[in-house]
Nucleic acid binder design. Structure first.
Length: 278
DNA sequence: AGCTCAACCTGGCTGC
DNA sequence: TGCAGCCAGGTTGAGC
């Protein structure tokens, strides 16, 4: 389920139930995720308290007594808070138990990750996976003229398509495949346009679109937060009506021109050939 | 350094 | 109905 909005909604959903609670056990049901889940995790985490839950890019960061528990949901990961009496289900991979409550990572495709970064290893920002991330879309570094410069400067001399440039997350994080198409549509920019050819005004429109689309998605997901505990279905995804994503052949909601599909970097892109210019 | 692409893994859908 | 083939929200790392 996870692009940045879904990860943020997950953070908001688990925080009130998990923050301040102490781990009584950890079950690694299948540790073969993106990277092996550290076998030492159960022993390491026993008795540790969740001090805070933050997010960097699509990583959830659970600050514990002696370090950070890093959780990435990959393509199909879902984190839920459930009663510890609930039986594991197929594709449940790791369960963090807080006495009567459990935090369960369900991830059919196993592209997710559960990693440990101790304080001794340095600040979390120095972690190799975190260090290379672009700026946060809702941070001061990505507001106003800062955002324009982030997009403009990072894209100079880049021949890569703007779609792939954004998806790479080296300039700004959190724009996944679905919202990337949506953002480019909102900004009126063709996904195949070379990143290096973006003008400053286009960078400005793009920055605005990114903030707006992600904000709207978080709000849409947030509306289902009350159901977070013991929720059965997917939370807050696709409650937002896509303008272009997965709408190939259907009329553009703005101009009625049929939406086009395109594969870029092994990923699907959707755009309106009339509204979006190179 | 930047670009492309295979790979990781499983399930669901389409079409023969 | 069965099965092969293709597709899927992410990201790394190899090779050029």
């Amino acid at each position: 389920m996870p692009e940045l909005p879904e990860v943020e909604v997950t953070r908001l959903g688990i925080e009130p139930h998990i923050q301040g609670r102490t781990i009584s056990d950890v079950k690694i049901l299948d540790g073969r995720l993106r990277w092996p889940v550290p076998k030492t995790l159960p022993r390491l985490l026993l008795g540790q308290t969740v001090l805070a839950i933050s997010r960097r890019g699509k990583y959830l960061l659970l600050e514990m007594d002696t370090g950070f528990l890093m959780i990435h949901l990959g393509m199909t990961g879902v984190l839920r808070v459930l009663s510890s009496h609930e039986k594991w289900k197929p594709h449940d991979r790791v369960v963090f138990i807080f006495n009567e409550l459990s935090l369960r990572l369900h991830d059919p495709r196993k592209f997710g990750a559960v990693l440990w970064h101790s304080f001794q290893q340095g600040p979390i920002e120095s972690h190799p996976l975190i260090q290379k991330l672009g700026v946060e879309p809702f941070s001061p570094e990505f507001s106003g003229s800062n955002a324009i410069e982030v997009l403009y400067k990072n894209s100079r001399k880049r021949s890569i398509a703007v779609k792939q440039f954004l998806l790479a997350g080296k300039a700004v994080v959190g724009v996944g495949n679905i919202y990337c198409s949506e953002c480019l549509f909102e900004a009126g920019i063709h996904p195949a346009k070379a990143a290096g050819k973006l003008t400053r005004p286009q960078c400005e429109r793009l920055a605005e679109s990114i903030r707006a689309v992600l904000t709207k998605a978080i709000q849409a997901g947030g509306s289902s937060l009350k159901d977070f505990v013991n929720a059965d279905g997917d939370l807050g995804y696709f409650t937002m009506k896509a303008k272009v994503y997965d709408r190939a052949g259907e009329p553009c909601r703005a101009c009625k021109t049929p939406i086009k599909h395109l594969v870029q970097g092994q990923r699907s892109s959707y755009f309106c050939p009339q509204c979006q210019k190179r």
